[in-house]
């Protein structure tokens, strides 16, 4: 079996407008890849398409999880296959507590007729909340309702930790975070780094990558990856700015 997430020649459009134009990327398990690029270049579209969002039209290409194409599957099937998307803008679900939501998500992974063990569940939940420095009272609150930006993102990381995915796609997780929240969230991610897991960290800023140090940095422009390098590339981008990307690669992609 192929232990990686592979995006092959992906072409995606919405409302007749092409967004992804032959996107290619392979992340083997155990690695963290950062995807950087200017706004409107298709980073978030990529994240949503990987998670099975129905608004986008896949013209061609594949997304392979351990060699199996997940395009065309329902979002819940993709989730069960091991892909987790940490949302840039997590949704508010009024009246549904964090504890009940995560429990329902874990229950949905069990075979029919099997009940989640409540005691074990809460033990695990509390241990992971402690690791993320979350107050236990937090679990009784309605999911994301009235949360600050930092609380929302920590809640995303908590869900990620509880669902134990093989592939994590993190869409602009650093947006809306102050430096303390950024550190806590990054520590949570770093705790989850392992040989059995791959991360795609989508970010606009290099700042996050000081905390979550990537193995590979990709630069995205106009619907595809135009340049890849090691963690130093992120710093180069930071100092030169995205205009440099546009100048260097706009002609190549035209």
């Amino acid at each position: 079996m192929n232990h990686s997430i592979e995006v092959k020649n992906l072409h995606v459009s919405i409302d007749g407008q092409a967004i992804l134009k032959g996107f290619n990327l392979t992340i083997p398990k155990g690695e963290v890849h950062a995807l950087m690029g200017p706004n409107g270049t298709g980073k978030s579209t990529l994240a949503k398409v990987m998670a099975g969002h129905e608004d986008y039209i896949v013209e061609s290409g594949e997304v392979l999880l351990d060699g199996v194409n997940i395009l065309g599957q329902e979002p819940d099937e993709i989730s069960h296959a091991g892909l987790f998307l940490a949302f840039q803008y997590p949704m508010e679900i009024p009246g549904v507590s964090i504890a009940n939501f995560i429990r329902a998500a874990k229950q949905a992974r069990l075979p029919e007729g099997e009940e989640i063990n409540a005691i074990e569940y809460y033990k695990e939940l509390y241990a992971k909340m402690d690791a993320l420095k979350m107050d236990r009272k937090f679990t009784a609150r309605s999911l994301n309702e009235g949360f600050s930006g930092g609380e929302k993102k920590r809640c995303e990381i908590l869900q990620m930790a509880m669902l134990d995915p093989k592939y994590c796609v993190m869409d602009e997780t650093d947006s809306g975070l102050d430096i303390d929240a950024l550190r806590i969230v990054s520590e949570g991610v770093n705790l989850m780094r392992s040989e059995d897991r791959a991360f795609l960290v989508i970010t606009h800023y290099q700042r996050l990558l000081d905390y979550i140090v990537p193995d590979v940095v990709h630069v995205m422009f106009d619907g595809r990856i135009v340049h890849s390098g090691d963690k130093e590339l992120a710093k180069e981008l930071e100092s030169k700015g995205y205009d440099w990307v546009k100048e260097a690669f706009a002609t190549a992609s035209a």
Partner: peptide, 25 residues
């Protein structure tokens, strides 16, 4: 909202029902 819940592994029906239960909770 449904997409968000489905991304966490809930079926469409489970997601809707959770939203409804939240509403009357």
């Amino acid at each position: 909202q449904i997409f968000y819940m489905m991304q966490r592994g809930l079926s469409e029906g489970e997601a809707m029902s959770l939203a409804v239960n939240g509403f009357v909770n």
